[in-house]
Amino acid sequence: MEPWLDVIAVLLILANLRLLGTSRLSVCIQTVAAQALLLGAVPLLMHADELSARLIAIAAVYTVIKAIVLPWLLRRAARELGGTREVEPFIGLTLSLLVGMGLFGVSLFLAGPLKRAGQGHSGLLIPVALFTIMVGLLVIISRKKAITQVVGYLVMENGIYVFGVAFAVQEPLLVEMGVLLDVLAAVFVMGLTIYHISREFDHIDTDRLSTLKD
């Protein structure tokens, strides 16, 4: 099963790049869902020879929440808010891709010292985890709409999940479940907030929001 981890790591990188390169909101949401689906498979592949019911259950819950429920909520929010279906980046999409490539280099560099700590799995998982976290941050700071910031937050959470899985056997998955619960709550709150911002100001452009004066 080990070789497949490499393939999944590469697919995760590709999903990140797609997130940076696309101009459509729906593709962003779809990509986050696909990424979560891939992530659900990671712990199963890592412990393919010692599968326990608990592991499968945790992976299944994770996949259902992150690949089905959250994207569904986001899609609904995007639909009800209306407006344009483009992501409206501060920096161009091509430049985003190039910055993303640079971030991957940085995360490979940062992952060097961490490699010894996480053993017995593909050497790519830790750089990919760092890369995913950074891409999430990049999406949060480089896109105008509030809903893309939620997407960035989810991507960051995906990265944290990979990080946890790469280092841990089973216990940190429990911690992860706690984080996941937080994210679920946060997305609900953000969904409500976006809705109210939109109702109050007729747009969800955080750039314009920050220039408000009292």
Partner: peptide, 18 residues
Amino acid sequence: VPQMLVAAAVLAALAVVL
């Protein structure tokens, strides 16, 4: 089109990094 080609170059660069 340039965006597609830059994406292609990024994929190849990723292969080099790997």
